[in-house]
Design a protein around this nucleic acid. Structure first.
Lengths: 233, 233
DNA sequence: GACATGCAAGATGTCTGACATCTTACATTC
DNA sequence: GAATGTAAGATGTCAGACATCTTGCATGTC
């Protein structure tokens, strides 16, 4: 695993400061020379870091004037947008809203996938469900989470809609850490396995409405589990 | 209007070549020295251009080995994905996928909005519907499109889920131009007005399932209109 | 022949020092 | 007050250099 480059260090720190509100939308950020001095790197390295933020439309450069933060609605990196939107909100509200969002995308994806999924994909989903069961028996949370995420990822790809996969991808990273936390609760694992089995049945039936309802039920269960075992005790 | 920078020229040309299929996902692209010679710019300029594509996860860099094109579903810029997905594929498939995506997000948002929408927001929606009617009478397509988009935007924000609204923003830019094209067809305008009125009624009733179904019907109508009036004649 | 080691070539990562161009504020002149 | 010029600040680009990683090939050893 390669060490993080200097360019990424500069870019990430600047984005952290933007998301934290140090440079609100419309305000200027420190110039190249200032950041060069701050990080003790060459100006070229700072320029490259800036370019990564400009490419995501988080920043805009005005030659001779400086570099400015764009309004959130212009950012084109979904991951950055989600980070910024989470900032300053209570973690409970964030968790609930993320499940609402998942519900929209994943019930829709399940509906599409039910009519488009291949036999190979169904076999793979079965494999991941078996992984979840085995991980549950061995109390291996990491393995459980990986299988859980893979199961959902298969449905997203089986939807055959590339935009769905792209839109969901930034969520995956956010969800992985949260999933690790919730999956430590044994009852949540048991519920997830049952819901996935239900979804499996629906997929095999190729009934789009049944698949949508099965995923919807899973999201409802997920929200209930979150409230019962994580947020409210 | 500032002249396009050299960095943008290099980056845009490379992206054009990727989208055109000259460098398919998984393949390597020309190295820094080669692009520097090709464009007669310094290697640093090429590096900055590359960084803009890396930041959008179109490219990944492997030090000592080269720079490679990522699979489409890893790209983080919806606009770039749309361009690549449109290439070599019929525009019909892309348009259908975009409506599928809208269907997921907007039926979900309508469901949430029905229970959360304020009287002020309902009044505003009414205003936009009236704008659509007036624009239809006056055959003012731009005004019609603006009111149409504003109506939908209100629902997204009334959902009270901050992630939905921000996640949908990049789509809005893509949809605006497509909406302008479809709204030139008078019958499509008539249908949209009827569907929006139906959604209005559902929102006023605060019945979440009714709202979801109303929006679903609108998306179905939108898909049918696209097929009947734009794609198939 | 199989394996280990070293070296060169190719590729990216970063730096220094320099000059070009644009923007803005201030001073000077009419 | 308006117009002009200048200096300072900020970004845009360049050339040349060295560092570090990867890979393939040649050579040596067992």
């Amino acid at each position: 695993m390669a060490r993080k480059s200097l360019v990424d260090e500069v870019a990430d720190e600047l984005l952290d400061r933007i998301v934290a509100g140090e440079f609100p939308p419309g305000s200027g950020v420190p110039g190249e020379l200032e950041l060069s001095a701050r990080h003790e790197v060459s100006r070229m390295t700072v320029r490259e870091a800036m370019k990564t933020l400009v490419a995501r439309r988080i920043l805009r450069v005005e030659r001779g004037r400086g570099t400015f933060v764009n309004p959130l609605n212009q950012w084109s990196s979904l991951e950055a947008v989600l980070r910024a939107a989470s900032e300053g909100q209570e973690d409970a509200a964030v968790a609930v809203q993320l499940i609402e969002l998942r519900r929209m995308l994943e019930t829709g994806a399940a509906e599409l996938a039910a009519s488009r999924i291949t036999a190979e994909e169904l076999t793979e989903m079965d494999g991941q469900l078996a992984q979840m069961r085995a991980a549950h028996e061995e109390n291996d949370v990491d393995r459980f989470v990986a299988a859980d995420l893979a199961f959902h990822d298969l449905i997203l790809h089986a939807s055959g809609n590339v935009f769905v996969a792209v839109l969901f991808e930034p969520l995956t990273r956010i969800l992985a850490s949260r999933r690790a936390q919730t999956s430590k609760v044994v009852q949540i694992q048991i519920n997830a396995i049952a819901e996935h089995a239900n979804i499996m049945d629906a997929m095999r039936s190729h009934d789009t409405e049944r698949a949508r309802l099965a995923m919807d039920r899973h999201m409802e269960q997920t929200l209930n589990d979150l409230l019962a075992y994580v947020l409210e005790p």
